[in-house]
């Protein structure tokens, strides 16, 4: 871990100013991802701006019947909120499918969205990785890629976004709210929030330097059956091989988003009408254009089968 300076401002304006004031400024929330990476010098911020006192730790109703989740609401608090449990079950389920009880007590809503890939080559600074060190090559392509992506990937990077929470938020059409140093407030549809790697895998989101996430807005509840099925090699405390979030309505319509396959939660709205037909036809459409490796080819079948299982249960 490189030396850094630290401060803990009380307002969003101070925080945004602080993070830009010093070179290498970074926000730190729960710290569960950033500190992990700083210990390995995958991340080397020179200044940490601790956002815990900014007051973004409430879950409030919005005028149009949704909920606004403060950026600092922890994963545990969010998953346990009675309104989330009742109206946004898929979100609650996705969160508790991730990490561990201890981590969820620290992990925040904003930090979770911004966590970085778990690609093992990204984590090992001896290895080539375009995301960590642009231009150094991709260790995973041609290497060990069983856990990595096959949708939206590029020849520069095949990393996945590891968040479970984000998959549910994508399904729910959440909006990410931000503020920057000049006070501009943005509301970014989560579909646009994470960027595909292309030739610049080090750029992962649409956020501008110094831009602070203040909260996430959930639209009105969708009703229906909420399911999150995460498939992994061990029963808990493991990242997804594949995860499927679904909200299914009585009339056979529904939404599906998938984790573990792409650099962002993977959802194709245009494919969703096919859900009425069969899991195969939906999955074929959702996963068209897949670029699997030999190691992760199985994810194609796994997505379809996981969804088939969900449809089987819900329609039983």
């Amino acid at each position: 871990m490189k030396p850094f300076t630290y401060e803990r401002p009380r307002t969003a304006a101070d925080a945004v100013a602080a993070v830009l004031r010093k070179p290498g400024g970074r926000f730190i929330a729960g710290g569960t991802n950033l500190l992990d990476l700083m210990k390995l010098q995958v991340e080397t911020p020179g200044h940490l701006v601790d956002v815990q006192d900014l007051g973004f730790n409430k879950i409030e109703p919005t005028p149009d019947g949704g909920l606004r989740i403060g950026a600092l609401v922890t994963n545990t608090v969010l998953a346990a909120d009675p309104r989330i449990k009742r109206d946004y079950g898929v979100l609650s389920r996705a969160i508790v499918a991730g990490a561990s009880g201890q981590l969820r007590n620290k992990a925040t809503t904003a930090g979770n969205l911004l966590q970085r890939t778990r690609c093992p080559y990204f984590y090992d600074t001896n290895q080539p990785c375009n995301k960590r060190q642009p231009g150094s090559g991709c260790g995973a392509i041609g290497g060990a890629s069983r856990g990595l992506g096959l949708m939206g990937v590029s020849t520069s990077c095949i990393a996945t976004h590891p968040s479970d929470m984000a998959v549910a938020m994508r399904l729910l059409d959440a909006k990410v709210e931000t503020i920057d140093d000049v006070g501009t407030v943005r509301s970014i549809p989560i579909a646009d929030f994470h960027q595909l790697p292309g030739t610049t895998p080090h750029i992962e989101t649409i956020l501008r330097p110094g831009e602070l996430i203040t909260g996430v807005e959930l639209p009105r509840p969708l009703g229906g059956r909420h399911v999150y099925h995460k498939v992994r090699d061990r029963a808990s405390y493991a990242f997804a091989l594949v995860s499927v979030a679904a909200v299914l309505q009585r009339d056979g319509s529904g939404r599906v988003a998938v984790g573990g396959v792409a650099p962002k939660p993977w959802r194709v709205e245009a494919a969703e009408p096919l859900l009425r037909r069969s899991s195969e036809s939906f999955a074929n459409s959702l996963l068209s254009g897949a670029a699997p490796t030999e190691d992760n080819h199985f994810k194609l079948a796994l997505v379809e089968r996981t969804l088939a299982g969900i449809l089987h249960e819900v329609r039983a």
Partner: peptide, 22 residues
């Protein structure tokens, strides 16, 4: 990694051992 010659999953997140739930 048979190109570079090392065990890729060299931590406790990568090398999965059973947890309580297993």
């Amino acid at each position: 990694d048979t190109r570079f010659g090392f065990f890729v999953n060299h931590d406790l997140a990568g090398y999965e051992v059973p947890v309580h739930a297993d």
